[in-house]
């Protein structure tokens, strides 16, 4: 995925824990972990807005773009 999430860096700069951010934003810790580890496929504007509001930052502080191949979704046959 060419989009990189810098949530852990911003959290460190703000000295805020993932649990606290999850409480403030109203997103589960599990979902925030998915976002932090770069496994998320998409971010809702509402979530991004809430993250920017609580972390006092811009979307560009949270997201980076690195040119590279877009990884497709894993084949569902493997899971079935």
């Amino acid at each position: 995925m060419p989009i990189r999430v810098n949530l852990d860096r911003v959290l460190l700069e703000r000295r805020m824990s993932l649990t606290e951010l999850a409480d403030r934003v109203g997103v589960t810790i599990a979902n925030l972990s998915i976002l932090k580890t770069g496994k998320a496929r998409a971010v809702r504007f509402s979530t991004l807005a809430a993250l920017c509001r609580e972390l006092d930052c811009l979307p560009g502080d949270l997201l980076d773009y690195e040119p590279g191949p877009a990884d497709d979704m894993p084949d569902l046959d493997g899971e079935a």
């Binding site: 997103v27 979902n31 925030l32 998915i34 976002l35 496994k39 998320a40 496929r41 998409a42 971010v43 809702r44 979530t47 979704m73 569902l76 079935a80």
Partner: peptide
């Protein structure tokens, strides 16, 4: 259903 399952997985990974 395969496409539905793919969309479901994508929705799961939409934060």
């Amino acid at each position: 259903f395969r496409e539905g399952a793919r969309l479901r997985r994508e929705a799961e990974l939409t934060i």
